[in-house]
Amino acid sequence: MHEWALAEAIIYTVTEIAEREGFREILSVNVKVGELQQVDLETIKFALTQLKRGKLEKAEFKVETVKAKLKCRICGEIWDFDKDKLDEEVAEAIHFVPEVAHSFIKCPKCSAQDFEFMEGRRMYIESVGGIR
């Protein structure tokens, strides 16, 4: 349940934002999750509802996946991450630490492992709304 740890990170961060920006109550939180992390959305949403309290009690969490795009730094090729092309153990490793993709994924055009994650790498909180 690695998702539980990520949900905790969201709760800690939103709580800190609420304090810092003077919210009395948080009503909405938009979270984006990179496809590379292969997070189970239902699990993370469940964890968020279990963990929310205090100023976050009434918060609605919207969690969406962002498609992962990779770009080769050598030849410029852009391609989509495809979990189905990976064996289960590798997919799991990337789920925990997406950067280890550099050990297993190659540019489909030139086979280089020097590529960047254009989008869909990690989780971030896009916006927070509530009553000040």
Partner: peptide, 22 residues
């Protein structure tokens, strides 16, 4: 545990992301 002891080349931001993630 995650790289399965294979070669792993990381540029600056990739290192920081791995560090924070773990």
């Amino acid at each position: 545990y995650f790289s399965k002891d294979k070669a792993l080349s990381l540029r600056g931001q990739d290192f920081s992301d791995s560090f924070l993630e773990i």
